[in-house]
Design a protein around this nucleic acid. Structure first.
Lengths: 342, 342
DNA sequence: CTGAAAGCGCTTACAG
DNA sequence: CTGAAAGCGCTTACAG
């Protein structure tokens, strides 16, 4: 139970109210509350009690005005809808949550005008820094205008290599995927993926091809199958690949949704997964990957951790420590759709 | 191209800098920038040009300190991970995005301590109001302590009926679902749903049962099938229901994931959907509902709109207008899994 | 150890 | 129409 006390005008209690109640000056009240050493113990106690009674919370605006630091940060996303932003956002929130930083969330909805509008608003609120979260891994134009605070780009790198960008290593992810299929004893590996206009798709192809080349192999069909990121493409492409290349014994898919479609077609065709063909997804989207039959092995890009790192980088930059850009490796999450064969 | 100009100490330009450059007093500069009438046109132009040159952005902290309004709002979620929070959050962001409000995002991760910590921080930043977004529709304890600003609860209502809560009408959603199946000519309707511990599950059962009763019918099996919210329960339950009640011709599912599992089993069993059985999901989760075979008809709870309404309610409350709580109806989204029979 | 004073960046009566 | 002054809530030298 917090006892309550009438404040004239029903406004939030100020340090002046606390000082008055404790019978000291505002200067002394300030020192007591901020744990400065030069306050007599008894005085401190009286002030803290008064603050408690009034449920006093120091006005962060006034503090920010004085110190030049607000303890706030802007998080600029281009689409909240997209699944990729959310874990990054959670990770960033985590990085700040522990300390005294509060996060402004702004969704630009993929609109450059709206983004500029938000940036202006954030700067007028004197945020200490900005994190810009993209929705695709393709490089994006850097923020324009006079940005007087540090900026960290997450997921989508800035096109300006001098900016700090924390990104996902999709080439490495593709390599990881194919290396796992090879480790399972597969030799005839196809790659069914999404739109070729996505850097992410092209990077994964590059990694997959490199891993195969290192084993003196190449993709079944001698090329990746580009299409769309969804299940229906997975179903259609799988039917085609199996029809044209019956020897296929491993399929690396560019997304879990594609993989889900691939699994359905293989099931329809009576092909045994993982007995006769291994299937591997990408994204490790729990709702999709963990509930298919069989449950899907997938590559997880550790997006939450990426968000945390981005937050920590911004922290450092605010303190004047400029750390370099970084590419983030993924990890394999084994489920039932891949298994070593004799 | 914004021309840039040296500001001593590399700090953000202040109104004083602008005034100096324009050759007027800060008072006049302030009036010019804020569009007050009592400024000579020529003076105004000079001030605005100076502001432009310096890329001056008025310090919102200083303004907030003066006016007592910060133009900020706290958005408190209990889990960002959950799909339900995101659309609500987007809707709320929308409601504010148009105006001059910025949103602090805080994720309490379902932890009451963490929530209190965030509330304290937000109050010390003098937010003008709070939106509390729950992750389940079960009522939650109201925020504790001395909250001197308006609070709106979204999705999860506050247990205190005097608080403003914007919620989803799950009873109505259940009724909507069954009414549609009835309209399709189905008479033997089963209900497979998630955990009975969820208010949402129980409410939908209530709505479904009421709609059936109005047509002098009852649920196949004379009870709902409670289980978990995922596909595997949908698969298992469908097998059981069809086995025990072969006459079943409509299945209302408590989630799209359950429905997805139901569809798979019916496919395995060679039952024709929607020809011989109609299947209806709940949530209208695009990634799940729009990619099944056949594509799934579902109930959409309009969560984004719910978020927008919550934002508008908070607006009103901040302006001293207290609107009542509101329950939000869902809507039917037709796809291929339901169809009228002759 | 305590308090009066100045000042962070702005706005708003109030003189002139 | 313009500007000097007071003040929003706090912190930080600086006297005492």
């Amino acid at each position: 139970m917090t006892s309550e006390r009438e404040i004239p005008g029903n406004r939030a209690p100020t340090l002046t109210d606390v000082a008055k109640l404790a019978g000291v000056s505002v200067a002394t009240a300030s020192k007591a509350i901020n744990g400065r050493a030069e306050v007599k113990a008894a005085t401190r106690v009286r002030v803290l009690e008064a603050a408690e009674v009034l449920s006093f919370a120091p006005n962060a605006l006034a503090r920010g005005l004085l110190s030049g630091r607000t303890g706030t940060v802007g998080l600029l996303t281009s689409d909240l809808e997209g699944r990729f932003s959310i874990p990054i956002l959670m990770g960033a929130e985590d990085a700040f949550g522990a300390g005294q930083i509060s996060v402004f969330l702004c969704d630009a909805r993929g609109d450059a005008i709206r983004e500029m509008h938000h940036v202006r608003a954030l700067l007028s609120r004197r945020v200490d820094g900005l994190i810009v979260v993209g929705s695709r891994t393709d490089a994006r134009p850097p923020l324009t205008g006079n940005i007087p605070v540090p900026v960290v780009y997450a997921y989508a790198p800035s096109a300006d290599p001098d900016d700090i960008s924390i990104t996902v290593d999709n080439v490495g992810g593709g390599r990881l995927a194919v290396d796992h299929l090879l480790a399972c004893g597969r030799r005839n590996i196809a790659h069914i993926t999404g739109e070729a206009s996505f850097q992410a798709a092209r990077d994964r192809v590059e990694g997959a091809t490199a891993a195969l080349a290192a084993a003196d192999l190449s993709l079944v069909g001698d090329r990746p199958y580009f299409g769309s990121w969804d299940e229906s493409w997975g179903r259609a492409a799988a039917r085609m690949v199996v029809g044209q290349h019956p020897e296929v014994d491993g399929i690396f898919c560019g997304s879990d949704q594609i993989a889900r479609g691939v699994l359905e077609t293989l099931r329809d065709l009576g092909r045994d997964v993982p007995g006769s063909i291994s299937v591997l997804g990408f994204d490790n989207w729990e709702a999709i990957a963990a509930h298919s039959r069989p449950r899907l092995t997938s590559i997880d890009m550790n997006l939450q951790r990426l968000g945390t790192i981005a937050g920590q980088r911004l922290f450092a930059a605010i303190d004047g420590v400029s750390l370099p850009s970084e590419e983030f490796p993924g990890r394999l999450v084994m489920r039932e759709s891949t298994v070593p064969v004799g």
